[in-house]
Simulated assay, not measured.
Amino acid sequence: MTTTAAGPRPQAAGPSSGPALFHPTVARLTYRGLLGRRRALLLLALPMLLLIIVVAVRALAGQDDGTTADLLRSFALAAMVPLVGVIAGTGAIGPEIDDGAIVYLLAKPIRRSTIILTKLVVAIAVTAAFCAVPTLIAGLILNGNGQRLAVAFAVAAAVASVAYAAIFLMLGVITRHAVVVGLVYALVWEGVVGNLVPGARTLSVQQWALAVAQKVSENSTVTSDVSLPTSVVLLVVATCAATWFAVRKLSTLKLAGEE
């Protein structure tokens, strides 16, 4: 630390050192921030609601493949996964930027790409854990994995978690209103436009994930407007592009004293 008349000021970080892709300390701090009491309750709310709904549906309607596919598609994949992704993706870095705590992390000799990649891994893990696992359990409750529906939608939820985590982490870096923007994207684009406007479905993470579910499932009710090869390419491109842009944006943040 150097001291001036204005008080202590973080020194600019020296040459980057340490792990190139994953930093355990950054990961631990990010997990702690994401799984704090308030945010953990938010993360649990939608999975718990999904399980309550599927128990009620199973009790009232019995086992039915069509009902299972419709419910897992319309609630789990179209609503729960993107909303949990908003909480985990923006929460992995947004609060640190908002309250200025990111300055102390950036002052350390850690590559900024390492910071983003580590936080992305944590955001993906949290999103997948709170989405893919409940989706699998919901599918098993509804029809016992008949026609591989439970596994298919669980895999789709995990795949979608990767893209959503990257997209919402990027939003957390580029705007202080990441949660609002993320909610608009999740509810309007993925929830409405991506379902109702044929041309927009090609650019919907939900449709890309559905293509994966369609491949895994043996049920003809699981369909996607995007082919599997195209979906895989778009998932990879969206994830990599969002991650690259987040790294680039974080790299433009300057500490006091940096030239």
Rank of each mutant, 00 (worst) to 15 (best):
I52F: 13
G89K: 11
T135R: 06
R32N: 12
P8K: 09
K108Y: 08
I124H: 02
V84C: 09
G139W: 03
A238L: 14
A160H: 00
L149E: 08
A256V: 12
V122H: 09
T230V: 10
L29W: 11
A186M: 03
Y185G: 02
T3W: 13
Q207M: 00
A128D: 02
T4Y: 13
R73T: 06
A13W: 09
V193E: 00
V180W: 10
P8T: 10
R148K: 08
A45T: 14
W208C: 01
E218A: 13
G199F: 09
R38E: 05
V121G: 06
A241E: 00
L203Y: 14
T67S: 05
G182N: 01
L171G: 04
A128I: 01
A125V: 10
K254M: 15
S17V: 08
V103E: 15
Y185H: 08
G18A: 11
A138I: 01
R39N: 15
A56Q: 12
V57W: 03
A241S: 08
A200G: 04
C240I: 14
D64L: 05
L187H: 02
T230L: 08
V126E: 01
G7L: 13
L142K: 02
V133R: 06
A92H: 06
I87W: 10
L234A: 10
E218R: 12
A165C: 07
L183K: 05
F168T: 04
L149H: 02
R58K: 10
T25K: 12
L142G: 03
L136P: 07
L203G: 06
V233T: 06
